[in-house]
Design a protein around this nucleic acid. Structure first.
Length: 468
RNA sequence: GCCCGCGUAGCUCAACCUGGUAGAGCAGGGGACUCUUAAUCCCAAGGCUCAGGGUUCGAAUCCCUGCGCGGGCACCA
């Protein structure tokens, strides 16, 4: 920040700096060290319900929204995380000095106020102030009180203003937090152990994506930010933890889009003695639990399209879906390409797409009845992959061969082909129990449940280009 | 990386097509008002029109370049 003199500031900012100095000159500290509130706004309101004639004094704290100063009586809305409550100040009651200070507060100032709660003549529940304290002076004006903050760039860059001005934004991120809590509760209840695995990887495996590269100075070598959680979690199943999960950030060095942020949040969980059929049931349970946590009905809409999230979801084999769409019965990478092009975008209602070609699934177990396919599914909703899961490949010999096929693709220029992870193959050689595994994109799940069109609307601080 | 659109006061938007001194609401300042709630009414103030070039007597407006944002494509299990 350049050293700015008060004179150079826009008038709206200069006025507030001058107010700040005036307050200090009057002996009022504009940034309080601490404050004790007795009630949130919601608690104050429910207290009034129990004492409709008026409560004992309560102390609330929050940010001042709008003010309505009317001669010797002033009204203001105080906002905290739970909601809002009206404050009433009267010159007769507070005395002229304190009243004057109240009426010169700005929207955005953080204050604490004490007084009984009762209704105004118009029926508005209000804290009738016996006194108030300025806790944090706001030196910048709030966004337009009626239109909110519309500028989409400012909403992302200054998320704090978006959260103050737009209730919908608060709702989305509250729902996101509750969804993640619900997922943890569901998995914990099934005996899964939440673990943390490294973000810095020697070998960026578990998915097909270009990684971010970073450098460790003391080791004198490059490391990669993880693109998936998979390989470390399956090592833990080898280690006997049997049911593990991690909810964590992964990083993919790809372009930005309404559905892609370079860092995003994945749930991955692995269950010994389970297969991909079990993972389908688990997927359904996760979606239902998440929807309930977000307060989203199972009969919902996404961007104007009706979506029914009631399980069980349709199950269809990829070869059949492609044949229905194109009339051709394909195998191998061509099947997968045709699926992505002709089928996936049209799958609006929740659908488990089963049995992927082995060539695009180097970590999944082959089908016993047809080794060209693996026991893998993706749960697709609104044309987007929500879950990717499979019966894990446990045969270390086959795993090494699959890695070598990927290495050949890599040598041929496919930067996203899976690299060989020797240590992972060694872990398999010790014996991975039959295991089902599942990965779920939390951001896309929250987008679906909160009806948000862009992944940027469900990530608090999404990646943008450098500010001008 | 390519294509399209957008960028005006702290915020929300006019004026741009068709070039002629940049306007309004909110927020802020002053005043009136002791039951308001998008309070109301009166007064005054607030701008490097994203940046840089060009065309023109004259550019917010037309043209070019750059930057930023959005969308699409490419990329992306």
């Amino acid at each position: 920040m350049p050293p700015e003199t008060v004179d150079e500031l826009p008038a709206v900012l200069r006025d507030r700096r001058e107010k700040l100095e005036r307050l200090r000159a009057e002996g009022v500290e504009p940034f309080a060290a601490h404050f004790h509130r007795t009630h949130t706004t919601a608690e104050a309101l429910s207290l009034l319900d129990r004492h409709p004639e008026g409560t004992d004094p309560v102390t609330v704290a929050g940010r001042l929204a709008t003010q309505r100063v009317q001669g010797g009586m002033a009204f203001a809305d105080l906002v905290d995380r739970d909601g809002r409550i009206q404050l009433v100040a009267r010159r007769d009651h507070l005395g002229p000095d304190l009243y004057e200070r109240f009426s010169h507060l700005d929207p955005g100032d953080v204050i604490g106020g004490t007084g009984p709660v009762r209704r105004t003549r118009r029926g508005e529940p209000s804290v009738w102030l016996d006194g108030f304290v300025l806790l944090s002076k706001s030196l910048r004006p709030l966004p337009d009180k009626w239109h909110g903050l519309k500028d989409i760039e400012l909403r992302y860059r200054r998320r704090y203003l978006d959260l103050i001005a737009n209730p919908e934004t608060r709702h989305v991120f509250t729902a996101r937090a509750r969804v993640i809590t619900a997922i943890r509760q569901l998995l914990d209840g099934k005996g899964f152990l939440e673990v943390e695995t490294p973000v810095l990887h020697d070998v960026p495996g578990g998915g097909n994506a270009r990684p971010f590269v970073t450098h460790h100075n003391a080791l004198g070598r490059d490391l990669y930010l993880r693109i998936a959680l998979e390989l470390h979690l399956k090592r833990l199943v080898v280690g006997g933890l049997e049911r593990v999960y991690e909810i964590g950030r992964v990083f993919r060095n790809e372009g930005l889009s309404p559905r892609h942020n370079p860092e995003f949040t994945m749930l991955e969980c692995y269950q010994a003695y389970a297969d991909y059929h079990d993972m389908m049931e688990l997927s359904e349970q996760l979606v239902v639990a998440a929807a309930q946590a977000a307060g989203t009905p199972l009969e919902t809409t996404y961007q104007g399209t009706a979506i029914d999230l009631h399980p069980p979801y349709r199950r269809a084999r990829m070869v059949d879906l492609v044949e229905q769409a194109t009339g051709r019965r394909l195998v191998g990478p061509k099947l997968f390409e045709a699926y992505e092009e002709a089928v996936e975008p049209a799958l609006v209602q929740p659908t488990f797409v089963l049995d992927y070609p082995v060539e695009v699934s180097p970590l999944a177990r082959r089908r016993e009845d047809d080794p060209r396919f693996v026991e893998r599914f993706e749960l697709v909703v609104t044309g987007r992959e929500l879950v990717n899961a499979f019966t894990e490949l446990t045969d270390p010999i086959d795993q090494r061969r699959r890695f070598e096929e990927q290495a050949a693709q890599r040598a041929a220029g496919n930067l996203e082909a899976h690299p060989l992870d020797e240590d992972y193959v060694r872990a398999l050689e010790h014996g991975l129990p039959p295991t089902g595994g599942l990965g779920m994109g939390i951001d896309r799940l929250v987008m679906l449940l909160t009806d948000q069109a862009s992944i940027r609307d469900v990530i608090l601080f999404p990646q943008l280009k450098e500010e001008a």
